[in-house]
């Protein structure tokens, strides 16, 4: 008598299949796993929830501003202290979702990992630019409201935004900051997709390097992360904004390149 498995191996080699069917043309649909379509899915899928979140934030900001105006006055930016600083974590979550949500969705529908990575890059740019605009718009509207109410519009340390140029600088700095955070989230997701649920954890720290670089080089423009003053970060030397922007963009580009390369090894399901 033989072992059943060994015996089954013998059976497997004993039988072959040979029939071929002549194919007939199938009606072609309009779908294509192209970069524009993949990027449309990642970008629209991200901007829907990010946009709703921003809408909610704007509504809450308006309510808070109304309450403060009704109760008295303030010269300190509400937008800076309560609404803009923590928003750096929104692109971090969006970057994570590129692998956790969109990679299975897209690869499962025939899109290559390389194309998913390219689509994620498009989304990174859109989220960063839109985020920078949103933050700048918040400061602008807040400044207008403060001016109308006769309040000073001061940021931390008594700094003030100098008109349109100041808003552009804040917007650009936030856009670069958001790009770095998005890249960090993306890298964390890719590490999880490649290494699995447990093994990726040690890579979380190096994956956060782009975000850390942004925090170090962009504090002048964005006035630092939440609690920056209490953590003593405001006292660190700060490079000029242009240099900070270039450094942040370089960190983003390197992270995106790394994510592109590593994405090719993502195993599904994640």
């Amino acid at each position: 008598m033989t072992d059943p498995d060994q015996h089954a191996d013998d059976l497997a080699t004993a039988v072959t299949t040979t029939t071929t069917t002549t194919p007939s043309p199938a009606p072609a649909g309009n779908g294509r796993p192209s970069l524009p379509n993949a990027a449309a899915i990642t970008t629209a899928g991200t901007m829907i929830w990010v946009g709703l979140l921003w809408l909610a934030i704007a509504a809450v900001f308006g309510i808070v501003l109304g309450i403060v105006a009704g109760a008295g006055s303030t010269d300190h930016s509400l937008w800076q202290h309560g609404f803009s600083g923590w928003q750096r974590f929104v692109p971090l979550a969006a970057g994570l979702s590129m692998t956790s949500t969109f990679a299975p969705m897209l690869v499962g529908n025939g899109v290559t990992r390389a194309r998913v990575a390219s689509a994620a890059t498009v989304t990174l740019v859109v989220v960063a630019v839109a985020g920078g605009l949103f933050i700048a718009l918040g400061y602008g509207l807040e400044g207008l409201a403060f001016h109308t109410l006769g309040w000073r519009h001061e940021l931390s340390g008594g700094r003030r935004l100098s008109g349109g140029g100041g808003l552009v600088r804040v917007g650009a700095a936030y856009a670069a900051l958001f790009a770095c955070y998005f890249a960090s989230g993306w890298l964390i997701g890719v590490a999880r997709g490649v290494l699995g649920r447990e093994a990726f954890v040690p890579l979380v720290v190096p994956a956060l390097l782009p975000a850390a670089v942004a925090e170090l080089v962009l504090r002048r423009g964005v006035t630092g992360p939440p609690l920056a003053g209490r953590l003593g970060l405001d006292s660190l030397p700060q490079p000029p904004l242009t240099l900070g922007l270039l450094a942040a963009l370089a960190a983003t580009a390197l992270a995106a390149l790394l994510a592109h390369v590593a994405s090719r090894h993502i195993t599904l399901p994640i």
Binding site: A28, G29, G31, R32, M105, G108, N109, P269
Partner: peptide
């Protein structure tokens, strides 16, 4: 595969239709 639980059936089909060349 990869269907997000928070999406509707219609949205799932829209995604598939966007990506599948032979989708009917």
């Amino acid at each position: 595969i990869g269907v997000d639980e928070s999406t509707t059936v219609r949205e799932v089909l829209e995604i598939v239709a966007l990506l599948r060349p032979r989708w009917d």
